[in-house]
Design a binder for these strands. Structure first.
Lengths: 207, 207, 207, 207
DNA sequence: GATGAATGAGTTTTCATTCAT
DNA sequence: CATGAATGAAAACTCATTCAT
């Protein structure tokens, strides 16, 4: 009887979970959550159907697991704090570039997760609570500070941070919807996005 | 023998189709395409299961029908043309306000359609072909013209129109993801969005 | 209110029934009884689905109707009686030739009817009672007489007439099974069949 | 991880397939292919509905499986070869007796298969290709040889072997159609059949 | 009588989940 | 723990039959 608190056991279990989630992400991205079958995921992971149920209570838990993986990327909170030292323009540019790269890396997970996130209220609640709320809270503080300092226009903070997030999210969604232009010029899109967000579309008038 | 080309027959058929699509939109929005059952849609529409199949060949055709409904709103192309008489700032403000209102109206359809659109390649191809491509083409022409006239910054046109579209799309997705702030201040969000898109986030420097 | 005993009404009804049965035979032959739909039959007959139910109580009754049509060919009994004047060899040749022609003519009906006849006990019972039993009875009398007269080998009469019938039936079945040789040389097959039945396969020894 | 090439696994799989096919044959014979339900077959086999689909891809595959079983009886080709040592009369008698016994044994399968074979073109093509064509080919060679040796009448070989086959088939069909005389005297029928086929019905004339 | 839209029972098939090995 | 065969609930879809027009 293996000791469940044994750290080696723990690591083995974690490794197995990751193996399964990786396969799940791949199959979900390809077929979508509902059309993906446990059998396909198991085959992709190179294990038996039943084994999955030793690590996850049911198919839905795989989605939760994927969401956690999205969350585990440890860099996110750091960058807003870095922002306090950089000026906003530089920060937003760096941040968006980084974020776009990260989104691209997580695109497979996103592709499997997002459609279900739009539909599944439980998942949505968890996503709200675990990812969106904390992110927005940090961002709101940061933006509020910048506005107070007169570095940003005095727009409503809550909406502004959401519109910023929405812009990046929208580009990702367009990508997932199969838009060839975005797919082929992903990094470029990030740059144009920061340019628009910083200075707007309008040509500044010259005196 | 009722004439199948009889306009009254036609109208009855169209009315029934709309009744079914309305129910489908509602149930898809609530449960998602896959978890929605024909039985639920039929119950919602107040008809028998089999009746649905007298009007649509299969469940997927309901999605296609919903997509067509999205497409049938006849106003879209008009507005870009109106833009040629307004100045860009006024146009974008009016356009986005209108667009946000329309999205909100179509939100139920969008909620049912979008998740499946992210997953179903056939549907995606049709959406690309029937909705996105024509829209982008018109917008690209219009933006290209504005840039040539020096009214807009000389950003890459293809990416710019997509980023504009992505921003609105992203706000809608955030809404669908259950974000309370966006849900409660939908029209406000539209306004902030146009402000950001027009002038950027940065405070303009004062001499 | 049309008088149901009106002979003109009767004829109209009969004509409509025949029209429906003709369509049914065609569709049954093509798709088989179960895969044939009332809609297809109605379309083939150029009428509405519901109209069929004004003439036949249900789909199965169409099979019964087809069986009756098979039975209505008025020539069958005649030929055995003719046999009493011809010698057996001439009679069998003529009879089989005629029978093969008739089977070929009824092949469409047979193709729709036979598969269901092999499966449907009710239909089988009616076929036994209405077609096979009377035919075999007449044939048994005739063969019994011939044997008594020393014109035929003294084989068991009941089995002999059935084997004779079975031979022709078997050729028809082989035809329905798609055998190209039989399909292409149907009349020839009838001739060879009578030769075999009359003189056997063996070469007669020559003194 | 059980090896899928493990001969024990193979045998278990084969045994299960046979169990299912046996049940299918029984239910098909009783109700006919279309009226037979997967549920009935599963109940008859003593397993769950879904289990059938672990062994056969769909209901039609059960028919194919039954056809293969019919084909697997390994004795068929042997007998024609034996015929080369026996004289024809003895051979046909032995052969038909054997064949009739075999048909009787396979009658349940035949009853389920034949009606569908008359209706389903795919199945028909496979039956032609896998069973009828090879059988007829062997038989034609054998009969051709006998005719060349003057042991048989010089009838058209292709038609003759088909008429021989048709006779046996016809007797089986008569049986399936519920003819009591054939059902009760099956073996006798075989004997009469060989007598007729060998010497014909006519009394030989005595000098 | 003719029509064909509406009905819903009944079928095949899929697949998440269980559990004996 | 791993396995994968067995399970059976659940869903899409078909189509004979009815009946209001």
């Amino acid at each position: 009887m293996p000791d469940p608190t044994d750290p080696i056991q723990q690591q083995l279990i974690e490794a197995r979970k990751k193996q399964i989630l990786k396969a799940a992400a791949q199959v979900f991205a390809e077929k979508g959550f509902h059309s993906a079958t446990i059998k396909q995921i198991a085959r992709t992971a190179g294990i038996a159907d039943g084994t999955i149920y030793n690590y996850f209570p049911n198919k839905e838990a795989l989605l939760m697991g994927l969401m956690n993986q999205l969350n585990e990327t440890p860099e996110r909170p750091i960058h807003f704090q870095e922002g306090q030292t950089l000026d906003f323009e530089a920060f937003l540019t760096v941040y968006l570039e980084h974020r776009m790269g990260q989104i691209q890396q997580d695109m497979t997970i996103l592709q499997g997760l997002l459609p279900e996130l739009l539909v599944n209220r439980d998942l949505q609640a968890r996503y709200q609570h675990e990812i969106m709320a904390p992110t927005f809270q940090i961002a709101e503080q940061y933006f509020g500070q910048l506005i107070k300092e007169g570095k940003l226009k005095a727009l409503p903070v809550e909406l502004t941070v959401r519109i910023l997030a929405a812009s990046a999210l929208g580009v990702a969604v367009l990508n997932l919807l199969g838009d060839k232009v975005i797919q082929d010029q992903w990094q470029e899109a990030g740059k144009v996005l920061s340019q628009v967000l910083l200075g707007g579309l309008k040509e500044e008038k010259h005196g």
